[in-house]
Amino acid sequence: MPIDGGIAFRCAGLRKTYRSGETEVHALRSVDLSVRQGESLVLLGPSGSGKSTMLNIIGGLDRPTEGTLHYQDIELTGLSDHDLTRFRRRHIGFIFQFYNLIPSLTAEENVNLVTDIAEAPMPAIEALDLVGLADRRHHYPAQLSGGEQQRVAVARAIAKQPAVLLCDEPTGALDSATGVRVLQTLDRANRELGTTLLIITHNAGIAAMADRVLHFLDGQISQEVVNQTRIRPDELTW
């Protein structure tokens, strides 16, 4: 297992409260968590349980209302907007359920969006090759299937060789065969490159590929399961 033992994220007493009209929504209620570098985590839980909020805060897209969050020795909770952007730029790769590709750019150019600004990226074509789409690099998103689009999104996320990959329902819009392909790529990045991997899913079947599974309920971690053995994505069933 390529976990090097160092701590990637450490959070304590993390709370997030949204104001929605006149009511307060407690998205996170005091979450404590440590994630080791190179670890792979799956976050499970019903809608509104706080897992997306958790991922957004870890990725520097959102800020907690209370509590502290460190990435290695950087305290993210105290960073300015500009510094949070730099943090994302240097360390984080995101993958979303709906791909979020830029429709006016080809597959390769979508990957270039990241390689243009990253410090030590791999060539875009190499990233596309990793997801098996090198031959479709000149295609626009509208010319690709949903699965292919998501693989481009994965290529875009891994091209900068991020220390952390955050995936929010990466297979939610895909059929199972395509989903497995995407998960294989993520798994490879985690195993071979040592990328810390956090995946949100509704699909409990995916949990078996992770080192650790966190169950969210009502803004808290209700259960934590450590997998003694990780199953390869192609062996998963759902």
Binding site: G59, L61, D81, H82, T85, R86, R88, R89, R90, I92, F94, N100, I102, P103, L113, V114, I117, A118, R156
Partner: peptide, 12 residues
């Protein structure tokens, strides 16, 4: 698209 770029680490 602009939000996507922000997520990817583009500054304002």
């Amino acid at each position: 698209e602009l939000a996507t770029l922000r997520v990817l680490g583009y500054y304002h």
